[in-house]
């Protein structure tokens, strides 16, 4: 068979395959064409890129594909797709993959502080609480500032924390179990896997020893 004939034959088969929507005919055609595209198919099957990381295509899926909305319900198709909503927002590496604090600070979003009055502004309270922890683990800095942008004092005091020095015994294990900071972090606010967002103050050299 001449080179030209062979090329024509392959071309025809691939076109047919396309028409058949990449069915078995396509595979045949590609097997024929293998000498020009060696090993791609074999290698790609076992060695997908970033096999342990949820690929971007699986993040922020539209409701009908997210596994928690019923694709057989008519309402599912009227809901907004998170990907569409998050497109313009600053990104992060966890949770919704949106940096919500930055989004608010830099006015990418303008959530209301009062459900009736769009003009009402929060009373932001700038008080940092530093909690020392043992060893070389960085100390925790709790900023009231970022929290009071979203929340009101009454959300946490006194139901979750007593506003008094020494009155709150914090346990990281119970945070993981959804108590204290874990009431929000690990459910809706950035997840606890983001250690350094809270353990953010490195020890000074002398404190380490």
């Amino acid at each position: 068979m001449s080179m030209k004939m062979r090329a024509l034959r392959i071309m025809l088969m691939i076109m047919l395959a396309t028409l058949y929507g990449l069915s078995g005919v396509g595979d045949l055609a590609r097997a024929e064409a293998e000498d020009s595209t060696p090993q791609i198919q074999r290698a790609a099957k076992v060695n997908t890129f970033n096999r342990l990381l949820k690929p971007p295509s699986e993040r922020n899926l539209p409701p009908a594909e997210d596994g928690i909305h019923d694709p057989t319900s008519e309402g599912t198709y009227l809901l907004q797709s998170p990907r569409e909503a998050f497109d313009s927002l600053p990104k992060s590496n966890s949770g919704n993959r949106v940096d919500w604090v930055k989004a608010l600070e830099e006015k990418y979003i303008e959530p209301r502080f009062d459900r009736f009055d769009p003009e009402k502004k929060p009373m932001v309270f700038d008080l940092n609480i530093v909690r020392e922890v043992k060893g070389s683990m960085p100390d925790v800095v709790y900023p009231h500032k970022q929290h009071t942008e979203w929340l009101d004092c009454s959300n946490c005091h006194p139901a979750i924390f007593i506003p008094q020095k020494g009155a709150n015994q914090i346990s990281m294990a119970s945070i993981l179990m959804g108590e204290m900071c874990g009431v929000c972090h690990g459910k809706v606010a950035f997840p606890v896997s983001e250690c350094r967002k809270c353990h953010s103050q490195n020890k000074t050299a002398e404190a380490k020893n």
């Binding site: 008080l127 530093v130 020392e132 043992k134 020095k165 020494g166 294990a173």
Partner: peptide, 28 residues
Amino acid sequence: RGGDTLIRSLEFATKEEEYDYEIDRNDT
């Protein structure tokens, strides 16, 4: 209080208290 920084230092009253802290760290 605006603009303040409060430091909650880590001090253990007893060795038992420190042990409890380490148990929590281990559980975590």
